[in-house]
């Protein structure tokens, strides 16, 4: 949205985003979440994989249906090209607002170096790497996450 117009925004925060292609055509930027076993996915997505475990057998059908439909949507929109838009990178220069990239130090889905590549494409961006966090900082370290987010939004560390 912000590559179209930033008129109605003052700042931008992105948390472990994907969506651009950075490296060579035969290098994987984004872990193939459809091609790895659940245990491997948890290892890549969480600093502490046990926190991501869920007992599906205990969930009601409505919640299971939402999970299944979520996976389908994930494939529908991000199958090919895989989880990125080949044209997005060249528009990122239009984001002329202070931008914070919040990243987990142990994110194996999109690594902090991917985050750094993204930072270089957005003119006024900086990256804040949270220790002991994987791909979901808001779940894995909520307090740390909120503190860094609110500091940036309030302009305390802009």
């Amino acid at each position: 949205m912000m590559v179209r117009s930033t008129a109605r925004f003052s700042r931008l925060v992105l948390v472990a985003p994907l969506g651009i292609k950075l490296r060579g055509r035969d290098e994987r930027d984004i872990a193939d979440m459809h091609g790895i076993e659940r245990a491997e996915y948890l290892r890549l997505a969480w600093a502490e994989p046990a926190k991501g475990e869920a007992d599906y057998t205990a969930l009601p059908d409505t919640e299971l249906a939402a999970i299944v439909r979520g996976r389908e949507a994930f494939a529908l929109y991000g199958w090919k090209p895989y989880m990125h838009n080949p044209r997005l990178k060249r528009w990122l220069h239009r984001i002329d607002r202070p931008t914070l990239l919040l990243w987990g130090a142990q994110d194996g889905i999109v690594t902090p170096s991917y985050g750094d590549g993204l930072r270089q494409e957005i003119p006024d961006a900086r990256i804040d790497i949270i220790p002991a966090v994987g791909h979901f900082p808001h779940w894995e370290q909520p307090e740390e996450f909120v503190q860094r987010l609110s500091a940036f939004v309030d302009g305390r560390n802009a």
């Binding site: 459809h34 076993e37 599906y56 057998t57 299971l64 249906a65 996976r71 389908e72 494939a75």
Partner: peptide
């Protein structure tokens, strides 16, 4: 077959997927 390739999202029906999750995969 390596497990991740046995049930790509959307390949099997919603009902079949719910049944699989309920049975522990």
């Amino acid at each position: 077959v390596a497990e991740p390739f046995t049930n790509p999202p959307g390949y099997n029906s919603l009902a079949a997927n719910i049944a699989m999750l309920k049975s522990g995969g």
